[in-house]
Design a protein around this nucleic acid. Structure first.
Lengths: 192, 192
DNA sequence: TGTTATCTACCTACCAGTAGGAAGGTTGGG
DNA sequence: CCCAACCTTCCTACTGGTAGGTAGATAACA
């Protein structure tokens, strides 16, 4: 029994896919309304304002991401495999077009005009992702799995930039394979 | 005597800065109207539709970029310095906030909902930037200035992703220094 | 009986785009 | 040289449609 999602979760699902496609200004309550067969006013019942809707959406996304990443760090043997799993996750998302972009990366591009409550949440996700990557890289370096040229924090920022930039390139060129190439090369450079 | 720009160029200037801030759906003719003190209808006289306006804007941007990059390739001594100049350009733009993002990178994120005429132009810019980086990297490799682990095209794509991702990170974290760090580290890895 | 979820109906503000005209300069013919 | 046709630019005024958001009734459910 899948698809037993509550209405508010269905709203967030649709909104997230719409944001991934077109950003904060790229969707409307009417779009969500049409997509899940509910009136606009009913969406306002669940999320009174657009800023609240997107804030809730980013909160949920961030919580899912943190849970997933912490699961990897706790349950997957080596830092190398943890990193590989993270990159594989996005590679799959991009290849099957299920979620071809990180919703926070999308929103980060629009930072300057986001409501403050949304912008601060997006920033928080970037911080927690950077922290996770830093911890994985430094653990891997201690175990002799990664060779870092710079401090782990800096390498984490480089890696994060590569991943988000690779998403952008895959989209710009219309070629998911571009993400794969960049991701695997990134791993190769760390494990050389 | 600066500021002798024609009205249509003023329109494109404002539109570009608005797109850099908020994307394709993040600005309106009314915004431009307010910014340069002209009526909305007058903007429609110069650019009948929004798609035409943004197409013209991307054409102009692409032409300027290509001219600048080809100038570097022709007039700057070494490929290492050419690459450095390219990165310095963006570093300056981001630090002084004059143009803290590539307009085509911004639009690339919204590819899926851009008018076709705009999307194809954005894609074209990505292709020409990739080609320039490829030629610079392979020239540098031939001269023994760069050490490439992969084919020049792949290294160019990696570099491009890093640059765009670094722009995004600088914006997300609200810290221009992040771009600087990533850019200089990127250079260091190539010249090691 | 509340409470929650949804509905119809509506509001105001804004969107991209159009119609038609006024001002000013440019061009060409007598 | 003058006048008239023309062109470009900008204007006021408007259109149909959509944006986010609200009020209040109804239905389902606890």
């Amino acid at each position: 029994m899948k698809s037993m999602a509550s209405t508010s979760e269905k709203i967030l699902d649709i909104a997230q896919s719409l944001i991934v496609a077109g950003g904060y200004n790229g969707f409307s309550y009417a779009d969500i309304s049409a997509a899940i067969g509910i009136r606009k006013a009913s969406i306002h019942h669940h999320f009174p304002t657009k800023a609240e809707l997107v804030s809730a959406l980013v909160d949920r996304y961030r919580q899912q991401a943190e849970a997933g990443l912490n699961y990897l760090r706790a349950r997957v043997a080596s830092p190398a495999e943890q990193l590989q799993s993270y990159l594989n996750y996005w590679d799959t998302c991009i290849r099957d077009a299920s979620q071809p972009f990180c919703v926070c990366a999308m929103l980060a591009g629009e930072m300057q005009m986001l409501p403050d409550e949304v912008a601060s949440r997006v920033r928080a996700h970037f911080h927690s992702l950077a922290a996770w990557l830093t911890s994985v890289l430094s653990a891997g370096a201690e175990q002799g799995l990664f060779w870092l040229n710079k401090r782990p924090e800096e390498e984490a920022h480089m890696l994060m930039a590569s991943v988000h930039g690779a998403m952008l390139s895959a989209r710009a060129f219309g070629d998911p394979a571009l993400f794969t190439t960049i991701a695997t090369t990134q791993i190769a450079k760390l494990t050389r």
